[in-house]
């Protein structure tokens, strides 16, 4: 047993130092992931008025869904509303970067796509933006994961990950989910 008050404090400080190193190591990993792998949370402080969202240019109903722009970048625009995503099914390309942009005209929603890093809140007043590359083909659910009212449990979208030969944009660059 420790023989003096000072010695007890010394053992505590030694333990504290070990724990400090441990915490620094964890932080180091987080910093490494951010610097080398560009892993950071979906922050996108971009404001948009939820009250007039459906009158806006970008989030007007006709403009929702997946679109390939002239320079080949793929962007999907999705509205999360009570109690559905629009479009209910989002077509995304396999192994090709895509930007997902979400907005809500009413209350707080959220979504995740299991098996990917796609996870964001959709807060009325903001455009939520996630950058992702899907590496598994097939269909996967995209549920709302934040309480948005009594219909929340049924708010379930889908994502179709299409290989290059099925990801065919139309004349306007738009891509929709394949029908079953």
């Amino acid at each position: 047993m420790a023989s003096s008050h000072q010695e007890i404090l010394r053992t505590e400080l030694r333990w504290g130092a070990v724990m400090g190193v441990l915490v620094a190591g964890i932080l180091g990993l987080i910093i490494y992931a951010a610097l080398a792998l560009h892993i950071s949370p979906p922050s996108n402080v971009e404001r948009i008025d939820p009250k007039t969202l459906q009158l806006s240019d970008e989030f007007t109903e006709q403009n929702l869904g997946t679109q390939v722009s002239g320079d080949g970048r793929v962007t999907a625009r999705i509205v999360a509303t009570q109690y559905a995503f629009l479009p209910p099914c989002v077509a995304v390309p396999l192994n090709r970067p895509i930007t997902l942009r979400f907005a809500s005209p009413d209350v707080i929603h959220g979504l995740l796509i299991a098996g990917t890093n796609v996870n964001t809140m959709v807060v009325p007043g903001y455009v939520s933006q996630v950058h992702a590359t899907f590496t598994q083909p097939g269909e996967t659910p995209m549920p709302c994961h934040e309480f948005c009212g009594l219909g929340h449990s049924a708010m379930l979208g889908r994502v179709q990950v299409l290989p290059a030969d099925q990801f065919k944009p139309d004349a306007q660059g738009r891509v929709a989910c394949a029908k079953h």
């Binding site: 950071s40 949370p41 922050s43 996108n44």
Partner: peptide
Amino acid sequence: FMDPEHGTGFKFLQTVLTS
């Protein structure tokens, strides 16, 4: 962390404080 209304800087700072 998954919210759109704050920049990444504040999220990182609070990660450090949380640790």
